[in-house]
């Protein structure tokens, strides 16, 4: 995406194009470039993990080590932040982490589309987590779940205000969750695009920006991982709040 669209606007890389127009019951379900990359992401995850684990040897090779490491990374995250009650949700959090990680990293490939650079995608994931966690908390604790919004030892006079503020703060969770991922991805890719444009425009003199782009790529790779991690760990923490109610 850096070099190819050098002539266009830096925002053009985020454009959705319909490859196959489809409609089901009035709902637009067209297969877009975003959908292509979602498919690429899940195929890449599944194939690489299955391929890495094909032998399942006692002494793992490089690929198997990475697969096991990713498993243990997320498993530890869930265990440390949610405890044993989080075990049931581990596959979901692992899927979420891998999906975001691969979407972020694959999006860094030139010409690629970054699924997670769209607010609606990150918001859909965040709201799923948010609603899921809230429902889990409500099922587990019924009405006691609402004590999450009432800090202990608060005078009755200001309690209603605090409950409203805490409720707003709670409702802000999916927004921050989705905004953070979206903003990081969009900012990083726009920046890469802009400097990619510099490289092409300056031609021979573009060596300076080119070096900068390499450094920026390293940084973006790190951000790609960090954002997937942040999304997954916040999911764990929200889940922990809902399961254990210690706000």
């Amino acid at each position: 995406m850096t070099v190819a669209h050098a002539a266009g606007s830096p925002l053009e890389q985020f454009k959705i194009t319909r490859l196959v127009e489809m409609e089901v019951g009035g709902l637009d379900v067209s297969f877009t470039n975003s959908a292509v990359w979602m498919v690429v992401v899940i195929v890449a995850i599944s194939v690489s993990l299955l391929f890495a684990m094909r032998k399942g040897s006692m002494v793992p090779g490089r690929g198997q080590s990475v697969a096991e490491l990713s498993y243990e990374f997320v498993a530890n995250m869930v265990r440390d932040n949610v405890g044993s009650a989080g075990r049931a949700y581990f596959p979901f959090i692992f899927s979420l982490f891998m999906f975001i990680l691969f979407a972020n990293i694959l999006g860094l490939i030139p010409y690629a589309f970054t699924v997670t650079s769209h607010i609606i995608v990150t918001f859909a994931m965040a709201i799923t987590v948010f609603l899921g966690v809230t429902v889990i908390g409500l099922i587990k604790h019924r009405m006691r779940f609402f004590t999450l919004f009432l800090p202990k030892g608060i005078p009755m006079v200001i309690a209603p205000f605090l409950v409203i503020i805490e409720l707003f703060s709670y409702l802000a969770r999916p927004i921050t969750l989705s905004l953070r991922l979206f903003a990081n991805m969009m900012a990083g890719h726009t920046l890469l695009k802009v400097f990619g444009g510099f490289v092409v425009a300056l031609g021979f003199l573009g060596i300076g920006p080119f070096v900068f782009i390499i450094a920026l790529y390293g940084l973006e790779l790190m951000v790609a991982f960090l954002q997937a991690y942040v999304f997954a760990i916040l999911t764990c923490l929200y889940l922990n709040d809902a399961l254990h109610l210690h706000h």
Partner: peptide, 21 residues
């Protein structure tokens, strides 16, 4: 563009979850 993205996100993520889990 929201609807197709959400729909395909649900489809692909469900598939991924099934394969992984």
């Amino acid at each position: 563009d929201f609807a197709p993205q959400i729909v395909w996100l649900i489809i692909t993520f469900a598939l991924l979850y099934a394969v992984l889990a």
